[in-house]
Design a protein around this nucleic acid. Sequence first.
DNA 1: ACCCAGGCGGGCG
DNA 2: CGCCCGCATGGG
Length: 287
Amino acid sequence: MASKNRIEVTSGAFSLAHTFGSAQPLTFFGDYDPQTGRLTYPSRHGPISVVQRGDSLIVGGDDAAAAVADVRRRFRLSDDMPSIYSSISTDPFIRDSIRRYDGLRLTLNDPWETTAVFILSQFNNVKRIRLITKRLIDRFGEPLQGEPSLKGFPSAEALSSASERELLDCGTGFRAKYLRSAAAFCSSSLDLESLEGRPYGETKEALLGLDGVGDKVADCIALMGYGLLEAFPIDTWVRRVMERRYFDGRKTGIRGLHEFAYGRWGRLSGYAQLYLFHDGRLGSKRG
DNA sequence: ACCCAGGCGGGCG
DNA sequence: CGCCCGCATGGG
């Protein structure tokens, strides 16, 4: 039965568990309880919770309509997954990953949050990125709805006015100066919101102007902060998987990998990357 | 104890 | 331009 806090999804086209396990920004800001399968994350409408029951998502929040809209947007629920799966299923490797992680979705995140998280991601691991993110929120996050217990990720202004020492105390390490510099730039010269709706090339070029943002991080922000699906971030996992599966184990330059990806998956490269990354990262533990 | 993690900036040839 | 190197920290 339909209700205003329930979203029906196409059968098999969404998995909250796989999506939460995929190390995207939303998963760094939210709390996921594997027992109940409930994800809770902060928003400007207050805390939002999502739990999956088969092909239904049950959404909780102070403002039900706003919460449902937020979930639809952040989990890209209007993406036509059967069509996307069909388009990117170009070979047995990616088909196998899709079968294994059916319902894994890209998320859409705030551009500044995405920028900050991926600056922190360089030469780092997922567990520690979560740790640092949590410390930054606890220390510099601004209370939402006047509730001190509910904080969102700190604004660019807040982080630019923090001292390098304070950022170091959160465990940011050598990335502290990058984060501070990027925060200063984003709170003065570059309005990240104004990039929304711009084409991939322009967006990436603008992002590359930020301290601590190179080719890979810029693609992550384009993909997960702006929803530009032709972005194809190449990190160690994706590189490893691609060389093993598509290049017969040969070392291949970033340039070559980008050309291969765009030639094969085109405007949906980002979704292909998500499945390659997830398969590579989890597959290495699986053996 | 040792090794590695969703790269990047700077310096050099 | 392309390559190579150092880099802060916490967990396995």
